[in-house]
Design a protein around this nucleic acid. Structure first.
Length: 514
DNA sequence: AAGCATGACAACCGCAATTAG
DNA sequence: ACTAATTGCGGTTGTCATGCT
């Protein structure tokens, strides 16, 4: 890097600037070890050493090479920069897709991910992901492309989760599978991270709580959601019921966004964990409350803001804990669910009366989403009739949708394996050049100023067809167009809904089918 | 042009796991 | 079996470049 090139022959500068540390490995006590950026001369020394002695024994490098670096630093330098076959430069589209996919499966297992990306280092991947995630989070965008979510979900569902990608982290998965409690990491991760996948429901029909809770949690699909092996089922049910009771699900009919009619659209985003670009507060409830379940264990003793801090993607649970679950009674799961279920709601949530499924946690948000999708297919009249509700929410929803639509522009590259081509061919896009962020804003403005939402939603209804539903299940290669400034953008909208629907249908099937 | 925000990297730190004695 | 050393990993921080206001 340019940084490095500027550092050649300036040892003194960096010694003074970055300080030093004493060697603590006994090899040269009192020797001042250099820190900071490596110089070309140091690199040469290290390369020379490795060529002569091979990798390893890093702590003795300074003895043989004359380097004043600790072994750790040498190893890192070699691994990240000097070893042969390192691939430099920007990640390719394929690599980016791989990273998203791997992260959806593995979480922050950078080293494992690097193993699947020849020539790339864990540090590189980590930096890439963190930067990318920061950017996306700031923009309020979901971390994973829907097709990655769907694919991962399907793979997990069909027991081919590891497939060609073995993360070696099957411990907790085994546990999950054994307990028929297999919910894909990525789904929860995505929900937890920013839940961008949820808010882009095409519309928000009023649905009857009874329609998907015919007999409360004691009947499908909820009863099947619970691990059949749970010995403390009653307890869990009771807990879950109280959880449901805390929401508006116990009313005959609830309007998911009704309660936010009078609130700002931020509440929707907050409820679904969709970050507002303007508000990245770390204490957003949805993040906090989703954490316990997504982790599958109760980590709520810690400040929930940590969920944000740690950027936990997948089931980032110490494997020992899961391992112990496998050999000991499942109460931890109960507890975790219990904790999740009884997750304290922020006072304002209660005060505002927004104890809706949106605020009560990602589980019912997920289920709500899944069921809503089901309802939306069967009840277009409801859809249209309800498209008139919650104007502010609708706007927020629209915003979320818009974000989603432009979200995966990275994957809209015609060369991308996600294959934007077909979509782009099917749906003429007016503008498709370059980066779309500005265009997205333009589009958002367009959307917000466009004809009233009812009309838009009706259009969506019109373009919904069983065909698109069927297609949705084969949309693994579906890619969002780069830009959606198009006269018939609602058709794209509809296709996104298809993907979304596919995901949520999978989620619903997966949950109810367990 | 200056200041600021952000991105991209590189490197360090601490902890945990593994290995060697 | 125990301990220390080594290695690996993930989180975090620091620096520079770039773009925007």
């Amino acid at each position: 890097m340019s940084q490095m090139t500027n550092e050649v022959d300036n040892n003194v500068h960096y010694d003074d600037q970055t300080g030093s540390q004493l060697n603590d490995d006994g090899n040269g006590v009192g020797v001042v070890l250099k820190k900071g950026p490596w110089t070309a001369a140091e690199d040469a020394l290290l390369v020379n050493y490795v060529q002569k002695h091979g990798e390893g024994n890093w702590n003795v490098v300074q003895n043989y090479s004359g380097l004043s670096r600790c072994g750790k630093s040498c190893r890192l330098r070699w691994a990240n920069h000097l070893r042969p076959n390192l691939k430099k430069g920007a990640f390719t589209a394929e690599e980016e897709r791989m990273i998203a996919e791997l992260h959806a499966k593995m979480g922050n297992k950078w080293a494992r991910m690097a193993a699947h990306l020849p020539g790339r280092t864990d540090n590189e991947i980590k930096n890439y992901w963190n930067t990318r995630m920061k950017r996306r989070r700031r923009a309020g965008l979901p971390l994973y492309p829907p097709e990655v979510l769907l694919q991962a979900f399907q793979e997990r569902k069909h027991g081919q989760g590891t497939g060609e990608i073995s993360d070696g982290d099957g411990g907790h998965r085994d546990f999950l599978k054994k307990n028929n409690y297999e919910i894909h990491d990525a789904i929860f991760d995505s929900l937890k991270e920013n839940q961008g996948i949820l808010p882009f429901l095409p519309d928000l029909p009023a649905i009857s709580a009874n329609s998907f809770l015919p007999n409360g949690l004691g009947s499908p699909p909820y009863c099947n959601l619970l691990p059949s092996t749970l010995p403390n089922h009653d307890h869990l049910q009771e807990s879950t019921m109280s959880f449901i009771g805390s929401s508006e699900l116990n009313s005959n009919r609830f309007y998911p966004f009704d309660h936010i009619k009078d609130n700002t659209s931020d509440k929707i985003s907050e409820s679904f964990g969709l970050y507002s670009p303007l508000d990245r507060g770390v204490s957003h409830g949805s993040i906090c409350y989703s954490h316990s379940l997504s982790n599958g264990n109760s980590s709520t003793s810690k400040p929930t803001s940590e969920a944000v801090k740690s950027e936990l993607p997948s089931l980032q649970i110490p494997e020992t804990e899961f391992g112990s679950w496998g050999t000991s009674p499942p109460p931890p799961l109960n507890e975790s669910l219990d904790v999740f279920i009884h997750s304290p709601q922020p006072p304002n949530a209660l005060d505002s009366g927004s104890s809706s499924p949106l605020n009560s946690g990602l589980l019912d948000a997920l289920l709500y989403q899944a069921n809503t999708l089901g309802c939306s297919k069967n009840n277009s009249s409801d859809k249209s009739s309800n498209s008139s509700i919650a104007t502010p929410g609708d706007r927020a929803e629209c915003s979320a949708l818009n974000m989603y639509e432009t979200e995966w522009e990275d994957y809209a590259d015609p060369l991308s394996p996600f294959g934007a081509t077909s979509i782009l061919n099917e749906h003429p896009v007016v503008s498709t050049n370059g980066n779309s962020w500005d265009e997205w804003e333009l589009f958002q403005t367009f959307s917000e100023n466009s004809a009233d939402n009812n009309e838009r939603l009706q259009s969506i209804d019109q373009v919904w067809t069983p065909k698109s539903e069927n297609q949705s299940m084969s949309l693994l290669n579906f890619t969002l167009p780069d830009v959606l400034i198009t006269s018939d953008w609602h058709e794209l909208y509809s296709d996104h809904d298809s993907t979304n629907q596919a995901i949520m249908t999978e989620a619903s099937d997966d949950i109810s089918g367990q």
